[in-house]
Design a protein around this nucleic acid. Structure first.
Length: 258
DNA sequence: GATTGCGGCCGTCAATAAGT
DNA sequence: ACTTATTGACGGCCGCAATC
């Protein structure tokens, strides 16, 4: 376009610089990659999986590859006759790609196809590690758990934490806020309105509903309640405490009770 | 040249299964 | 009912190289 644009100087010793617009021509692009393939002993599509982006740049292909989004899309464009399915070219998603929920969902969609996941129930059996090692690490890093990642991608499902081997974050239960939140929910669910109502609750009932690690912070349920709800009076006698096995079979214990 | 995706490696500890 | 042993979800750190 510029009038002076076509002025050309003598080439430097090494690589002969191509004329302006040369790399825009597909046939030239293709011959570059043909040449590259020959020099690097690339015989079939899968051989490209060993090639790095920087190798192409070093060989002088930067201006070609920049016209496409990645090495893989460059190859797919230039060699449409080849079957690129199952060939993993060394490239990666654009920066900040995974912040988009649609992209996360796309990943999980493809993951689902690979593992024949067709229902909610199938998702409950998916291991965190599988997702991680199949390229989901970056997504998982954005969420505190696999479950919450799935929730974000598929809000249309009614995700129930009980169905998943999801875990509280490390040290979660050391925080009294979290302990209190759990017991608040527990109380609401079981309609426990005042301290004496807790006498209906057993240690193992709480463990059963996911409070095991909370209770581990304390020597007993009563101790937990006293610490978490210091504003209440916790009369020991109102809260059942667990007794040794066969405790009540012993007449002297029975007698002691009365 | 700075940032960031990616995956390997592995420690920590929440959750639960297995044992008594 | 209660203890212990095991599993594996989660996360930190790091080096490499793709992307900006």
């Amino acid at each position: 376009q510029r009038a002076s644009g076509s002025r050309h100087k003598r080439q430097k010793r090494k690589i002969a610089r191509k004329p302006r617009g040369y790399w825009l021509v597909p046939s030239n692009q293709r011959s570059f990659f043909d040449e590259f393939a020959k020099n690097n002993n690339i015989k079939q599509p899968n051989d490209w999986s060993q090639v790095s982006y920087q190798q192409i740049v070093k060989a002088g292909g930067a201006s070609i590859i920049k016209q496409y989004t990645s090495l893989s899309s460059t190859l797919e464009h230039l060699y449409p006759e080849c079957d690129w399915k199952g060939v993993t070219i060394r490239n990666r998603v654009p920066n900040n790609y995974w912040e988009q929920v649609e992209n996360q969902r796309k990943f999980f969609d493809e993951f689902a196809v690979r593992h024949s996941i067709t229902s909610y129930n199938d998702w409950t059996k998916v291991a965190y590690q599988k997702v991680s090692e199949e390229g989901g690490r970056s997504i998982l890093k954005l969420y505190p758990s696999l479950l919450s990642a799935l929730q974000a991608s598929y809000p249309e499902y009614n995700w129930n934490p009980k169905d998943f081997k999801t875990r509280a974050p490390n040290h979660y239960w050391e925080d009294m806020e979290n302990q209190r939140k759990f017991l608040d929910d527990f109380a609401r669910k079981h309609e426990l309105r005042e301290p004496s109502d807790w006498s209906r609750v057993t240690y193992w009932q709480i463990v059963d509903e996911g409070g095991g690690t909370l209770l581990k912070q304390y020597p007993s349920l009563v101790a937990a309640l006293e610490a978490i709800y210091p504003e209440f009076e916790w009369d020991i006698s109102t809260t059942r405490s667990h007794v040794p096995q066969s405790y009540w079979k012993d007449p002297s214990n029975q007698r002691k009770f009365f």
